[in-house]
Design a binder for these strands. Structure first.
Lengths: 223, 223
DNA sequence: TAGTAAATATCGCAG
DNA sequence: CTGCGATGTTTACTA
């Protein structure tokens, strides 16, 4: 990784055009060719960048260094270096990568293994059951043999209710499944989402992740 | 901005839990307190981060340095430094910020100036025509004098179709406007969005930004 | 490879 | 402060 601190201007031309006036910034060049330009503030997002794959060409013109980064899509990033304050490089090797725990896929997986955690007798038909407009997270049958479509979110907001509503519209056109009712499941369901779900006859269940994980790990298995 | 190259491990505990095994990485600390941990590859997104506002506490334990970053929401980021290869700091000042040009607002503006670009004879009634639940981008009349509501997006996805559907619901309650049909316009319309639009009787039009801009700039004007 | 949904999204604006 | 919409979103996953 190469790190350059420099007074510079930057021009991007691609999906839009953008310009950065003269200022001191950090130029970060990663081993795979990624270039990112950071200011000394704001969140982690750089002011400007160019992702791999790309090519970086350095040119010197009248004692003024210019970096021209271009990619196969025809986007270009032009950096004009007015004053280089620091220029270092470091070997870092390949990163083993991030280990995550507690995201939506996890919730869905745990619930698929034990749908009755949701407080009623449910048996799984399929995960990621396909509809004409996308897959619904879990399709189950309840004690009465009726179909239940379940949408799982980490945080339950209005968009998720809309999403489940669309799935229900499509699923209910299938005579083999109809009538299908909906269950909206999340660690936290926002008041507005709860109201909208209620208005549409969709049930809401808030689940505790630690509890779900705990039950999962302590449930006796037959193997 | 402080830049540290170090062999380290990282643990994040907050909205989820995450762990980074031992490796050499870049630790970036910005003037506003933001901390970001970068590997030497991947796009501009860091492996781990903590945005402002937060507090960074450095502690030394058995000759092992530990950074503990925490924020008011109770999230914590713990960095254990096993070997510091470089530790530098640079004054960079405040950045003047990015100047952008050529995003979605542009599309709507250009189409308002020439609705017939959409492939049929349309005349503009109003931009940002208000409905009870927000303004629809363009309201037009077609050759037959019927009302057409147009939603413009850069990328056409399902959410946009939902949005236009809501507008149509409201507009069609107005006897002076009804019946109102919908046109979904974007540079690129995703297949599922197209299916949903078709299902609801909403027309889809993909437009080329460069072509639209070109026509606009070459159209003769009467002033 | 293309398409779709999730994300510790970030960021800006309006109400 | 909250919610909504755009983003050069990026990333991960699946068909």
């Amino acid at each position: 990784m190469r790190l350059v601190i420099a007074r510079c201007t930057v021009d991007y031309d691609g999906r839009l055009t953008a310009h950065l006036p003269e200022a001191v910034r950090l130029l970060m060049v990663k081993a795979d060719g990624c270039v990112a330009i950071h200011a000394d503030g704001g969140a982690y997002k750089p002011l400007n960048w160019m992702n791999a794959p790309n090519t970086l060409v350095e040119a010197s013109d009248d004692g003024l260094d210019t970096w021209r980064v271009s990619n196969p899509k025809g986007e270009t990033l032009t950096i004009t270096l007015l004053e280089v304050l620091s220029d270092t490089a470091h070997e870092m090797g390949v990163d083993p990568g991030l280990q995550k725990d507690g995201v939506e896929a996890h919730l869905q997986e745990l619930l698929a293994g034990d749908p009755s955690f949701l407080g009623e007798e449910l048996s799984l038909v399929r995960r990621e059951y396909p509809t004409g407009i996308g897959p619904v997270d879990l399709l189950c049958r309840d004690a009465d043999g009726h179909t239940v479509a379940i949408e799982v979110k980490r945080r339950g907001e209005i968009d998720g209710v809309e999403q489940l509503t669309r799935y229900l519209d499509f699923l209910n056109r299938d005579e083999l499944l109809a009538p299908v009712r909906g269950l909206f499941v999340a660690q936290e369901i926002r008041p507005h989402a709860r109201v909208l779900a209620g208005d549409r006859g969709i049930g809401c269940v808030e689940i505790d992740y630690d509890e779900l994980r705990g039950i999962e790990s302590t449930t006796p298995r037959l193997f």
